[in-house]
Every structure is written in C-alpha cells, then in structure tokens.
Design a protein around this nucleic acid. Structure first.
Lengths: 354, 354
DNA sequence: CTGAAAGCGCTTACAG
DNA sequence: CTGAAAGCGCTTACAG
C-alpha cells in the first residue's frame, strides 16, 4: 500500500524547532537537557514549540555524538531448544524491559542458534555502538560469551553467579546454596530423612549451589547422604525418567524430593503418579521458582520464590549505574528467597501438615 | 573497577581503515557495500585492512544518514500479569529474534505496564528513528497501539488477525476458524456429540474464530449447539473453575472439550480429576498450541500445532520486505495447522482410540 | 544567558 | 574506478 519513499516524510528536527522558536539549535538542545544556563522563559517557549511540532529527538544522531545509545543488550542463552522453553526467561525479559523503560533505556535482544551466531550478534551490537552494556541471563561454565565481554572490557552484568571473573563482574543472584539448604531443611522439619535431589541441567551454576546446600543441610542434620538419592539429569545410559523410576522402585526409596525447578517438579508428579505413588502422602516435593506452574498441578507445589522480577530490576539498575559511571565497583547483589507453602509436602508419616 | 571514561578507547572508524589502506573514506564505505564501481583489487586490500583492524561499522552513524536502523521493534502486550505468562510469547520472541539475526536486523523490545507506557515506548522508538518497523504480538479490540501505528503510517505487521484495518495490515496467522473446526471434527469423528468449548480470554481474535469454527463443525454435523457447553472465561459472578464444576455436575455433562490452549487444558485436567472424572475415559480433551505442556500432563495432550516458530519467521520476512520496499501490498500469510495426537482423546464410549 | 561553529562516523551525489 | 566535499541531526566547547 504505502511505498517506502513516499512515507519518508521528513521528521521534524531540532532545526525546525529552533527556527519556529526563534532561537539557535544549541538553545533547543540545551533546553532538552534542561541545562541550568538557559532561562526559564526561553525553555518554556522552546518546550511549547517542541510540543506543538511533536518533536522527538533522533536517537541515532544523539548516540553518534554521545557515544551511548541508551540501549542494553539482553543476551539469551544459545537456544538449543530445551533451556529456552523455560518461562523463567520470559519473566526475566519482562522485568528487564520494565526496568529499562523506567530508566529510559531500550532493550535489544541478542540471541543465536549457535554460540558463533550469538557472539556475532553481540559483536555487532557492541562494536556497532548499538548497545552500551549487556545483561547475561544465564551462567554456564567456559562461556565464550563471557570471555568476549570480558576481553573487550565491555559493560555487562549477569543474573546468576559467574563461573569465572567472579570478583570482577557485576551480578545479581539469590543465595542458591542457602535456598537449597532451606528447601532441604523444610523437608527435614517434616521429619523426612530420605530426601532425594533431582535436577536436569547440572551445568548451570545455580544447580550446583543448590545441591551444595542440600548436602550441607543433611550434614548439619547428621544424616548420611545417599549418593543414589542424587539424580543429575540424564546420564549417557539412562534418561531422567528411567532413573527416577528405578530410584522409587528400589528397596529404600526416598520419601521426599528437592526438585531443580517447578517444571521438573511437575514432571516428577506425573511420573510418580504413574507408578502409583501419592503426593504428598507417599512423597513430598519442594521446588524452586514459584512460577505459574505451582498452581497448575495437583497437588499445588510448595516452591521457593526467587523474586525473579526484582532480580531483573536490580541487574538493570546496577548495570546502568555502571554504564553511567555512578558506580565503578564489581558489585554483587544477593536477593532473599522465600518458601511459598502449598500442598505438595507432608509430614514423613504421610499425615497432612497442619 | 573500570571507569566509564577510561574504557572509552576510541573505536576504530572508517577513517582509520582508509588511512591504513591508503584510500579515501568513500572507497572504504563503498567496499563495505560491495559497490560494483570499486575494483576487486582495491576491495581486497581494504577488506584485509578492515579485518586486521577489527573494524565494525558504527550503526548509529549509518542509521543517521540512511534513516534506517535495521531494527525491528517487537511490541509485547500490556503486561497485566496474566497474558504475559504464557510461554507462547517466548516462542514468538525467540523465532523473531532468530529470523532477524539472519536478516541482519536487530530486535528491540517495546513493553509497558499500562497502555500509556507502552505507547510512549513505541513512540520513542518510532520518532527517535530507532526502529524501522514493528511487530505486534497480539490482537485485541480497540487497540490504541494499532491506532497509533496506523495513524502515523509506520511500518508494522501482526501475528494474528487484526480487528481493524484488516485489509491494510500485513499479518501472519493461522486459519483459526478452521483449526477450531478441525478440533471439533476430530472429537465428532470419535463419536462425541456433547462437546464443550472452554476458553479464558475471549477478547482475543483467535478465541473468537476458533469458537466460530466449533459452531460451524457442530452445524455441519447437524448437532444442536448447547449454549451451556460454551464457557468464555470468568463471568462477573463465576470464576472459570466454578463454571466448569457446575457444567460437569449438571444433568447432561459433555463428554469432550475443545480447550482454548494447552495451559487451559492442563488446568481442566486437574479440575476434572478432582471431581473424579478420568481423562480420556470420561472426558476427551483437545487443545491448541502444542506447547511443552502437552507432554507434561497425564494423559499427554492431543493438541493442534500452530507452527509458532514458522509464524514468527514469516512476520519478520514480510515486514522486512515491506520496510525495504520490496513489497508494498498489505499481504496476509496464513499458515496451516496440524493435529498432534496424544493420549487425551478417546472414543465417546470411553474405549481407547486405536 | 545565548549563538556560531566544529565534529561525531558514516554515505552519496558530483567531479574527474 | 576513485576522491573531495557536503550533509544526516545532534551536542559541546568557545565566544560574547
């Protein structure tokens, strides 16, 4: 319908405003920035003309001279399919987007099907002067993305604890070890002693930490850890499902599970129901994230809320401080978690928790 | 650790390349664009210098002169919480991001907590020359966002069928009426006659269309439609849950359900199980989206795949064609759907489908 | 308190 | 086939 060229009606610029207001372009520019050197009277006049003409500053021009585009690149994990289906990311993206809006930053997405592609995307944004800083939404070992960001001395921050350069990176995280311990302690308080830890993706930093917390809780409770109770995703011989079936049909099955996240907990609930175990009567389950799924299963899931939205707001804030030079230290922010009790945990006897 | 100013080491520009290669900046520029007027020999030399210096074009500068930023703004629905938790959006975002990468476009997110905020965000991007076009991820009635995009004659495309300006908007969609009909036909073929249609959000265009398809299927099968069998989210008196309970404890309960999407189907499964109905023995369920959830419930869900990823790729392609003037008509692309059979549907007798 | 001028890094007629 | 010059829309010393 409309041709590119035809629609190319000249946007109104600082020049148009200046002419109409009878001032110099520099005066308009300074008015936009609310410079103290411009008289209120002039500002008022200029502002009214700006409004009248519907002036909006050209961000490319501004970016060119300021060498900052007020844009934050959000780096998604390489989408091999599985990881990225976790709605967790949606919550983070949404939180970041919201926080950026408030700070008048834009958010640009960097993604890729392979690590190469992702790196290229980041590079274009970085060297192209398109993003002033980056937020990395995941944390994994030997990450070439982190290496790149670090080597190029770009501004970046992470959600989650980094594997490397820990002391040089701005990051926002939960105390995942404590969360793992708290989850386990919660089950211990319900008199469970045979507690399993089941997760899928053990390459993620947070999984490691939660497992450490689980071990710590058992140790402090002087309960000997049973290595069979720890399932770390699929092995080369067995899928997660098989391993779980085997564990629960063994001689000495667990009475409770700490699950890696709500999604895994959901799957476990189905699996266990299939082998005729009742939840929470036979097996109690606690998990992490407190996502929408917690309310969608039967029984509803007791889960640890990690305050993802707040996490996202915080990364944005810290990164922006860093970009704008208000803060130059590699600050870490650790947010608290909170157990949200629902119906998936019982006393070890199988009696309802009262 | 690192201060803003210190890190501000001058990026290498076209000038640096020109000097080192012993040519003019215009030659470098033309080499980048692979202009036919430059000799291969010169190009080769310039390119090698570019590589050596690690040159990356400054996108802001380029955008300033070209008046296009090779950026697509992706407009998320106003996040009142509920809608946005649907992982559906994550899939769309991912698909769009992937397609944009391939076309060397960047994706910028526009979001807001209120419609005002969202509009402001879009406006900044549009008038600020930040985005060349927009993709709207949802379709709702009386949308001020669409009004704005339309009034300002911006380039935009939608996923889903628009309420207004249908003949002037580039969009990509499924044939949702046909999908609704096919879902219903599938149940009819299993000898079900008492089929309910249950959805949550009836302000969305696709819900309306699927319902129309449901009605059409019944009509063609000469089955009288029972208005009680249609539940359209919560009314002012009753929540969805209450309505469903009531329907299934009524004298003449349905034996099958067409559910608005997988999430709703999941909830329905729990609900029905709670009132001691077996699925698929007592009630068959078919839904839409074929998301990860289909494999997470017991029984696994028969669901209609809408090819979301492909949908996303298509919007990007069409929008880019439009932006670049390769295509000036308000083209629509309708993608096929596909029933993915799993375990949630039986013959009306309650016997397993074989 | 305000303006004229230079410059950010690129592209593109216009010459040659 | 290549280069010198103007210009995209803004900001910021530098004068006054």
């Amino acid at each position: 319908m409309i041709n590119n060229k035809e629609v190319d009606f000249l946007a109104i610029t600082i020049k148009d405003v200046a002419k109409k207001a009878g001032v110099a372009t520099s005066t308009v520019s300074r008015t936009i920035q609310d410079h103290s050197s411009i008289s209120e009277k002039t500002k008022k006049k200029v502002r009214s003309v700006m409004k009248e003409l519907g002036y909006q500053p050209n961000l490319a021009a501004r970016g060119l001279v300021n060498k900052n585009m007020r844009t934050i690149g959000v780096i998604l994990p390489v989408s091999d399919g599985s990881v990225f289906k976790n709605p967790f990311f949606l919550e983070m993206i949404r939180g970041i987007s919201k926080a950026c809006n408030e700070k008048k930053y834009m958010v640009a997405l960097a993604s890729g099907t392979t690590e190469e592609e992702l790196l290229e995307s980041i590079q274009t944004m970085a060297k192209g002067g398109r993003a002033d800083g980056f937020i990395v939404l995941y944390s994994k070992k030997k990450d070439r993305v982190i290496d790149y960001l670090h080597r190029e001395k770009l501004f970046y921050a992470m959600i989650g604890k980094p594997y490397e350069y820990e002391n040089e990176i701005v990051y926002v995280d939960n105390d995942n070890q404590l969360a793992g311990k708290d989850a386990t302690d919660y089950l211990l308080a319900l008199k469970h002693e045979k507690i399993a830890y089941i997760d899928k993706k053990f390459d993620q930093m947070m999984s490691k930490e939660r497992l450490a917390g689980y071990k710590q809780a058992l140790m402090l409770a002087k309960i000997e850890m049973n290595p069979k109770y720890i399932i770390q995703g699929q092995t080369k011989n067995n899928g997660l499902e098989e391993q779980v079936r085997k564990l629960f049909s063994s001689e000495n099955p667990p009475t409770a599970i700490v699950a890696g996240d709500d999604l895994i907990a959901m799957e476990l609930i189905y699996l266990l129901k299939e082998i005729n175990l009742s939840i929470p009567e036979d097996v109690s389950i606690i998990s992490f994230n407190n996502s929408i799924f917690t309310e969608m299963v039967q029984p509803t899931l007791t889960s640890i809320d990690l305050h993802v939205t707040y996490l996202s707001e915080q990364v944005v804030e810290k990164l922006v401080d860093f970009i704008e030079g208000k803060q130059t230290l590699a600050i870490k922010v650790i947010l608290p978690h909170e157990i949200i009790e629902r119906k998936s945990c019982n006393w070890q006897t199988g009696e309802a928790r009262t």
